[in-house]
Computed example of a mutant assay.
Amino acid sequence: MRLLPIVASIAAVGLTAGCFSSAGTDAKAGSLAKGNSLKGATLTVGGKEFTEQLVLCQITALALRSAGATVKEKCGLQGSNTTRAALTSGSIDMYWEYTGTAWINYLKNTKPLNNSTEQYQAVAQQDLSKNRVKWLAAASANNTYAIAVKTTTMQQLGIKDLSDYAKLAHSDPAKASTCVASEFAGRSDGWPGLQKAYGFTLPKSSVATLAEGAIYDAIGKGKPCNFGEVATTDGRIKALGLTSIPDDKKFFPVYNPALTLRDSVYKDHPGIEKIMNPIAAALSDSVLQTLNGEVDIKGQEATDVAQKWLQSKGFIGK
């Protein structure tokens, strides 16, 4: 769901990867490979730089390898615009994108659709017709933005929803202190839009800009802020005793992840859909929270987490 300003030309996309591998981890055939052969196909899988994307990138690479494809990995690209440019320019062949991000930031629609099915269908139709980008099935997981707070602090302040949070921002800005990442701070579906939707303006003295990963610990400690921007599928929410405040005005768009690929790649290798759709069907909020937590809390490698999960589902062999 995240989007960074374009800071590099398409020609420089290949230099922004956090990880590039032409070999990667081998994967034995499992249920995904039954009747679905990609032998002879050479594919490049990409992804953004945050934990969930790193895991999804590895899941995709392993799944495709299990069906016989030769897969290059370009996981860890810096920002949504860079990753999208890598796809459309041909630097990568596919990556997981979020419906809300594409609808607002690539397709330039101003109002999201609250119904996840309608939002997915609209995104898939427009992106294919306008940009020749094919969307495979979306997961039920919704990695949307949220404002979170330590559960005990939420109870102490009597906050039940974001309307209550907005009232606190008016009455006691210091107690409503909020940590945001630089990207969220500039997005129309982030901090500016949230303040407009809920009718409040938090003074700059009560807003701290931190790296995304640091926000969770900051909220847990209540320093330098009581509240902060989070992603709803992040495993640290539960682990650190945080609560995502209910979005009673339904401001934040739906961000269902789905594998996107150039239509030309899909037409050359239509079997990719049968391999990847069962994976999408298995990715719920709780599953992604668990997988993300294995990396962010337990310190495991994204590749190992992806491999163990695929094997546990029988998607690939052990």
Rank of each mutant, 00 (worst) to 15 (best):
M1G: 06
R2S: 10
L3M: 13
P5R: 07
I10Y: 05
C19M: 09
G24Y: 02
T25Y: 02
D26G: 08
D26H: 11
D26Q: 14
A27V: 08
K28Q: 15
A33Y: 03
A33P: 01
K34I: 10
K39L: 10
K39Y: 06
K39S: 14
T42A: 15
L43T: 09
G47V: 03
E49V: 11
F50T: 01
T51P: 04
Q53G: 15
Q53C: 15
Q53L: 14
L54N: 11
V55P: 02
C57S: 15
A63L: 12
S66A: 15
S66N: 13
S66F: 14
A67P: 03
A67L: 07
G68N: 10
K72V: 04
L77D: 11
G79F: 06
L87M: 14
L87T: 01
S89N: 13
I92T: 12
D93Q: 08
Y95N: 03
T101Q: 08
T101D: 09
S116N: 03
T117Q: 11
Q119C: 03
Q125V: 07
Q126P: 00
R132V: 02
K134S: 14
A138F: 09
Y145Q: 05
I147A: 06
V149K: 01
K150N: 13
T152D: 15
M154K: 13
Q155R: 14
L157K: 12
G158Y: 09
G158S: 12
K160M: 05
D164I: 08
K167Y: 10
L168P: 06
A169Y: 03
D172F: 12
P173K: 09
A176E: 04
S177Q: 05
S177C: 05
V180P: 04
A181C: 09
E183V: 09
F184R: 03
A185I: 00
S188V: 01
G190Q: 07
W191E: 00
P192K: 06
P192Y: 06
L194F: 05
L194Y: 01
L194Q: 03
Q195I: 00
Q195S: 03
A197L: 06
A197G: 07
L202N: 04
P203G: 12
P203Y: 08
A208K: 09
E212C: 04
D217L: 10
D217Y: 03
I219W: 01
P224H: 04
C225A: 14
T232L: 15
T232V: 11
D234K: 09
D234Q: 08
I237K: 06
L242C: 05
L242I: 00
T243A: 12
T243N: 05
S244H: 00
D247C: 14
D248E: 12
K250L: 07
F251P: 00
F251K: 02
F251W: 05
Y255D: 15
L261E: 11
Y266V: 07
P270V: 12
K274T: 11
K274W: 06
K274Q: 15
M276Y: 10
I279S: 08
I279T: 01
A282P: 06
L283M: 13
S284F: 00
V287N: 03
Q289E: 15
D296P: 00
G299K: 03
E301N: 05
E301Q: 13
W309V: 02
Q311A: 09
S312L: 06
G314S: 10
I316Y: 08
